Simulated assay, not measured.
Amino acid sequence: MHILVCVKQVPDTTEVKIDPVTNTLIRQGVPSIVNPFDKNALEAALQLKEKHGGSVTVISMGPPQAKEALKECIAMGADEALLVSDRAFGGADTLATSYTLAAAAKKLGNVDMIICGKQAIDGDTAQVGPEMAEHLNMVQATCVSKIEVAGNVVRLEREQEEGYEVLETRLPVLITVIKSINEPRLPTVKGTMKANRKEIPVWTAADLDVKEGAIGLKGSPTQVRRIFTPGQRVQGQIIQADTAREAAAGLVNKLIEAKIV
């Protein structure tokens, strides 16, 4: 079984700052990490590989420095890694990103399962995985908390607000996972040494069967007009009184003064 895991290098959200002039994220000098949900996706793939055999490939679309995220995934146990990187991909929204990643998945071929994190912590859209499935005409299941494979049959549990939904489907399938599915392992010394020696191939737009008008900014119908930090919420006021009746009367007076009632 060949499992493809999609990962994204994201800024550490505890360090994110916004440029007040351009209203864009300041990435210079901000530490980057592997998207936490994608680590859960990788761990799920590695557990399936250990149980059923096969191989795990990690793929990322991003700038050249995203190789560091891929090397961390190799250190965790992934067999192969692939970076999709080109200036032509710049400015891509989720639709253009998913289209590009789907094209890379098609070129790889023989992919039985694609696992993605539920969402990236920098965008929180949870759209790339499902959109990839649509581009690939592949069965999809989102918010998965458990994966079991028996031959060609995949049994999945999806976490719901009031319980779990159990599904069965057949390979190939695209799955997005949530954090409760597992606890990602740490990179090993042996894995880190392997990652340091690993040459990660880079595919550009010329290497993929993509349409120029469907990638990058040209292929992105969504455009961010402005990013801003909401103003600090005004703190409420506690009405002090000896009795509940006096407190209620004080509240009514405050509401009248504010012309709310």
Rank of each mutant, 00 (worst) to 15 (best):
P64G: 05
I239K: 10
N182A: 13
T222I: 12
N196T: 05
L95N: 07
D207T: 13
L208F: 04
Q127A: 09
E68Y: 04
P31E: 10
K211Q: 15
G213C: 10
N35C: 08
L46P: 01
S85I: 01
A69C: 13
V111S: 02
L82T: 12
H2Q: 14
G216H: 05
T142E: 05
I59L: 12
D207C: 02
G231Y: 06
C116G: 01
T222Y: 07
E148Q: 14
K39P: 00
A150H: 10
Q237D: 07
K254F: 01
G29L: 07
E50H: 05
V202C: 06
P63K: 15
L25P: 01
R197S: 11
T243L: 13
W203T: 12
H135E: 14
D38W: 04
C116M: 09
H2T: 13
A103N: 02
E212R: 15
T24G: 01
A126R: 09
E257Q: 15
E212L: 06
F89T: 09
K254C: 06
S180N: 10
E199T: 10
V173G: 10
E212G: 00
G191F: 08
L46H: 02
N110F: 00
E43P: 04
G54P: 07
K39C: 09
I147Q: 02
R87Q: 14
L174K: 03
K67A: 10
I3W: 02
T57F: 01
T229G: 00
A214L: 15
Q235L: 14
A126C: 07
M1H: 09
N40Y: 00
V128K: 02
V173N: 08
V34L: 14
D209E: 15
G62M: 09
E161Y: 06
R245H: 01
A78T: 11
V128Q: 05
T176F: 09
D38N: 05
Q65I: 14
P230F: 06
L156A: 04
K118P: 08
E80S: 14
I121C: 12
D124P: 06
L186V: 03
G90C: 08
A206T: 11
D242Q: 14
L70Q: 08
I3Y: 00
H52T: 06
L83R: 11
E43A: 01
V111Q: 02
L82V: 09
L82G: 13
Q47H: 03
E212Y: 03
N253Y: 00
L25T: 14
V173F: 07
C6A: 15
E246G: 01
E183S: 08
R233N: 03
G90W: 09
T192A: 11
V21N: 11
P63W: 06
V30Y: 08
T13L: 12
K211D: 15
E72F: 10
V173H: 03
E199Q: 12
G117A: 06
G62Y: 02
A133Q: 12
D207N: 15
V139S: 15
S220H: 12
T243Y: 10
Q240S: 14
I178K: 05
L82P: 11
I227K: 12
M76K: 08
I147N: 00
S32M: 15
I26L: 01
D207W: 06
M193Q: 11
A41M: 06
K51I: 03
I260Y: 03
G191P: 07
A96Y: 09
V139K: 15
G231R: 12
